[in-house]
């Protein structure tokens, strides 16, 4: 039974690893890695939910009219997650470029060192 939800367990575990990394690391690049993991786990969740057991790829096939129509997996969540992947890439790119600017400006990418500065965060 619990194996039936294997993908969902993995999704939650990845989500939590990502969130924990974001909260526990003071290195800003490691925070971004955690954030990416956090977002990517949601992709797995959407992809798993589109799967129909025994279903094939949703492509219309020509065949004799009397054969039963094949079962298709639901393609919509996959399409949705393509959009979310783009959003994830944009977030990572923007976050990393902010880290570059922080490095240029503060000379470090360690959150604790920045906090210790007089005009830190």
């Amino acid at each position: 039974m619990s194996f039936g939800f294997f993908n969902y367990w993995v999704f939650i575990i990845l989500l939590m690893i990502g969130l924990y990394t974001v909260m526990s690391r003071s290195n800003l690049v490691k925070k971004m890695i955690g954030l990416s993991l956090f977002q990517i786990s949601v992709f797995l969740f959407y992809i798993s939910m589109g799967k129909v057991s025994g279903g094939t790829a949703p492509i219309v096939v020509d065949g004799p009219l009397d054969t039963a129509a094949p079962i298709y997996s639901n393609p919509l969540p996959h399409v949705l997650i393509l959009t979310a992947i783009v959003v994830g890439i944009a977030t990572t790119a923007l976050g990393l470029s902010l880290v570059v600017r922080i490095r240029e400006s503060f000379g470090t990418i360690d959150e604790e060192e920045i906090l210790e500065m007089k005009d830190g965060a």
């Binding site: 954030l35 956090f38 977002q39 959407y46 965060a121």
Partner: peptide
């Protein structure tokens, strides 16, 4: 220059919020 760290902090927290919303919609 603290605008940079403020924006980074907002990026982290805002993304977590938006991702939660995405899970809810899913």
């Amino acid at each position: 220059r603290r605008a940079l760290t403020a924006a980074f902090q907002y990026l982290i927290i805002g993304t977590v919020g938006a991702t939660f919303y995405l899970i809810g919609v899913g």
